[in-house]
């Protein structure tokens, strides 16, 4: 039986809650065994599908650097409930490049809407913004 990270976290939480200060190796074992029993065995249906689309998008922006670009982009993402997972910036003389990994899973908008919003921002600031699903980079750059 496979235990996912998520399940491990749950187990730890249960053990912590039940034992509090008075943890002994024997009591931990007991609690863990009880908790594992509660977990149903993983059937093939529960296994993550390898081609399941995640909500992770790579946002790339570049152009002539001027103040407020990162602020404007992140503000727009925040308004749409998009989670920024990672962000990196480089500048070369007057040009900048920003790359972000964002997660739109919890956003009420879909990728198309967010792209449309970003196009507006790009036009307004006279920069380029591209949004591409992470799967593309996985396919092209990872074996």
């Amino acid at each position: 039986m496979r235990i996912t990270e998520e399940e491990l976290r749950k187990l730890t939480l249960i053990a912590m809650k039940e034992l509090g200060e008075k943890a002994t190796p024997a009591s931990v074992k007991k609690v863990v065994e009880r908790a594992v029993d509660k977990l149903t065995p993983v059937s093939s249906n529960d296994l993550p599908k390898s081609d399941k689309a995640s909500g992770r998008i790579i946002l790339t922006s570049f152009g002539l650097d001027h103040p407020g670009i990162a602020a404007r982009i992140t503000q727009c993402l925040s308004d749409s409930g998009v989670d920024i997972r990672d962000m990196s910036q480089k500048t070369m003389e007057e040009f900048y490049t920003i790359i972000m990994i964002v997660d739109i899973t919890n956003s009420p908008k879909d990728m198309k809407d967010i792209q449309a919003d970003m196009n507006k921002v790009a036009e307004e600031l006279r920069i380029k913004i591209y949004l591409q699903h992470e799967d593309l980079f996985q396919a092209m750059h990872r074996l």
Binding site: I58, D86, I99, F137, M140, H141
Partner: peptide
């Protein structure tokens, strides 16, 4: 970052230029 800067820029270069 999970992807190298160069990898992402290379992809954009391929599709855009």
């Amino acid at each position: 970052m999970q992807y190298e800067f160069e990898e992402i820029l290379e992809t954009i270069k391929m599709t855009e230029l």
